[in-house]
Amino acid sequence: MNRTKPYSRTIPHPLFERLIVEDAMNEEKESWKPERPHEYGYFPGCVDFMDVEVKFTHLNKGDADHASIAAASIKLLNYADIDPLILDMNIFKCSGHDQLWQGQLEVFDALKEHNMRRLKESGIKIITCSCAECYRTFAVDYDLPGTLGIKVEHITQTLQGRGLKFKAPEGVTVAYHDPCRLGRMMGEYEAPRDLIQLVDGATMVELENNKERALCCGVSSMMYCNDATKAVRRKRLDQGTDAGIDLMLGGCPKCYMHMQCMLNEERMNPDEGHHHDYEMMDLMQFLVACLEEEN
């Protein structure tokens, strides 16, 4: 089917993605060296950009703190006797997952080139991410194990099997929401579940769709937030209500962001009658909350 005119369009994206694109196109040539050598590097992703974005859009009413996912991850890594090098956004750039999936290959290549150079300079052996999308991008699209010999881990894999102990302040029923990048694409279903099992006092239930059949949060590359994707998210939240949970845990800041946004929107429009009486949290935040009793 030949079209008469070439079809091209502008991609809808939130503001912070535009800033990431701007950031990607600024070339930084000067070299950088960490103060001391580290084995582990921790990549927080663009959580801070998300924080500023949600402040503008009034959607999260100040209670969605994405940066706390990064802070929680660092705290948990320290708790597990790992001293990670923080690969923060002042030195690194966004991993480029969203740009890749939106089809902006130029931007992705620029981001990839920058990050690969910085990773080479950092001298780390293992990179761990709290974001499932960054994890997939580093492991598959950057192919870090093949090119730089850096092992890529999701933070749940790093924390798994280190003899950590957690205790929930009170009894709680939790469910784990599989991010599609971590689950279906990278095949990691067990590490987060193992971590939840470690929490004393938390009962884990499975949602109706779990593991490879898990429902997506709806906006995996920040493309559109439309009625269809909202319906996907609502269906997922409804499954949480059906399972009778107190807490839904995600493994990706994007899942956290979109679910929080949905929960807030429901509460802003109480007439529509959609109501979910539980919290959405990132797994890292939950584990940190359960650290308290142990200390």
Partner: peptide
């Protein structure tokens, strides 16, 4: 889908 998006973003005719 990824390939299609990349192509259309670059303005290539389908």
């Amino acid at each position: 889908v990824l390939e299609q998006r990349a192509l259309t973003t670059m303005g290539v005719s389908l």
